[in-house]
């Protein structure tokens, strides 16, 4: 067993974990945070996406011990007061989900994408979400949600000309 100290959704935590414990299992089973889903379990689908020190990672392919000393944010952590984060709100507004299984991962990937590129073009959103699969295949509205969220988060910004939103 290895002792780890880390921050999860702003809360300092300490735990004794087996080194082979995956971060996604630590979050779901130890912390009781069920937003990050296990879909493929093979680093492909992105359903398990969370932020590690503010950038998106697939938590099925990170050991909990690798997150020691770092800060983890799950979709729950985007809404500490119960009010939807602008990206989550944009998904609701634009019908960016169907069954919802991929949604927490999509939202976290989108938050990371918009932090790196506040005004992506449609193509950049599609490429930026390359690591997230939606088996309901509602990609059109997911892309529209992210473009909409970009306008809400940074109303004054502009994206590259000539690409339709």
């Amino acid at each position: 067993m290895t002792r780890i100290e880390l921050t999860v959704n702003g809360e300092q935590r300490s735990a004794e974990v087996e080194p082979r414990l995956l971060l996604v299992h630590y979050l779901r089973e130890t912390c009781g945070l069920r937003a990050a889903n296990v879909g493929c379990d093979t680093t492909s689908c992105g359903a398990c996406t969370v932020l590690l020190n503010d950038v998106s990672v697939k938590s099925c392919t990170v050991l909990a011990v690798q997150a020691a000393g770092m800060s983890v944010t799950t979709a729950e952590g985007l809404a500490p007061d119960g009010e939807l984060h602008p990206v989550a709100a944009a998904f609701r507004q634009n019908h960016g989900l169907q069954c919802g299984f991929c949604t927490p991962g999509m939202v976290m990937a989108a938050v990371s994408l918009l932090a790196e590129n506040p005004h992506p073009t449609e193509e950049e959103v599609r490429e930026g979400l390359e690591g997230n699969f939606c088996r309901c295949t509602g990609y059109h509205n997911i892309v529209a949600s992210v473009l909409d969220a970009a306008d809400v988060l940074d109303p004054g910004g502009t994206r590259a000309a000539g690409v339709s939103a």
């Binding site: 680093t43 950038v55 998106s56 990672v57 697939k58 990937a109 990371s112 930026g128 690591g131 997230n132």
Partner: peptide
């Protein structure tokens, strides 16, 4: 390489 999440790690 891969996708953004993979490139972050």
């Amino acid at each position: 390489v891969g996708d953004p999440q993979i490139r972050h790690r």
